[in-house]
């Protein structure tokens, strides 16, 4: 089975994210870059599938030279080879441009299934997997928490508000991974050492025959609106305090 896992390098979840004063992006200095956690679920699922059905796993990513480290991380986990699409025109590209590049790289190679993370924790857009599926003309199943393969088809579980859908899709298809799908493995040391020698192709936009143009652009990055400091709800009547907090959750926080 030929399995592809698309990954993105993102700042660590705990990293200090500060908007630049001029609004042109975030301050990247001092940031620890890691593999997008949702992509890691995808890589893990790809590896599990390979272990079950045989075949190999190709890792594809788009980004500046530093993302090579993320490819190596996936190779250390057990993937066979990598494709690094490195072109300045794609740095910070939107979903459509990124998916265009990925699709161009994938079109040249055989594949039975493609894994993506359901979203990247940097821009939180959650579009690339679906756009990629459209560009390749194959079905998508997104935000998947469980996956089974049988007869050239996948059967997945996808949570929606208040329910879970069990969806079947023929292969090839794009699966976007959600937390809960699996527990990504910890790379073994021989894995890390071997990963250094595994093949990674580096390609630019021209080599892929594409011109990248982002259609959704972040024109300004700003700090979040100040979150009010924690409120202790005062009062003596537990019922009243309970009512107050429920009201705040609904009207201020908008989480229920």
């Amino acid at each position: 089975m030929n399995i592809i896992a698309c990954v993105k390098q993102v700042p660590d979840t705990e990293a200090l994210i500060k908007a630049k004063p001029d609004g042109s992006g975030i301050v990247e200095e001092g940031i620890k870059w890691v593999m997008n956690p949702y992509d890691e679920f995808g890589v893990e699922e790809a590896l599990k599938m390979k272990e079950k059905f045989g075949g190999d796993v190709t890792i594809i990513t788009v980004g500046p030279p530093r993302v090579m480290e993320t490819i190596r991380t996936a190779l250390a986990m057990g993937a066979e080879k990598g494709i690094h699409i490195d072109d300045p025109s794609l740095y910070g590209a939107d979903a459509y441009a990124t998916a265009t590049a990925l699709a161009a790289a994938i079109k040249g190679i055989p594949y039975d299934i493609i894994f993506c993370g359901q979203r990247a924790i940097d821009d939180d857009s959650g579009q690339v997997g679906a756009v990629l599926a459209e560009l390749l003309g194959i079905p998508q199943v997104t935000i998947v928490t469980k996956l089974e393969v049988a007869d050239k088809a996948v059967k997945v579980v996808r949570p929606i508000e208040g329910a879970q859908l069990v969806i079947q899709s023929p292969m090839p298809c794009v699966v976007t991974a959600q937390k809960g799908l699996n527990e990504p493995r910890y790379a073994s040391l021989p894995g890390i050492m071997k990963a250094k020698k595994k093949p990674v192709e580096v390609k630019n936009a021209a080599a892929l025959g594409i011109t990248a143009e982002s259609k959704a652009k972040v024109v300004k990055t700003v700090p979040p609106p100040a979150r009010p400091p924690g409120k202790i709800i005062e009062g003596d009547d537990p019922a009243l305090k309970a009512a107050t907090v429920c009201k705040l959750l609904r009207e201020e926080a908008k989480v229920i």
Binding site: K18, K215, A216, T221
Partner: peptide
């Protein structure tokens, strides 16, 4: 963006 650690203003062309 970034789990709410900053916000982006987006324009679509």
């Amino acid at each position: 963006m970034y789990a709410g650690k900053c916000y982006g203003e987006v324009v679509v062309s």
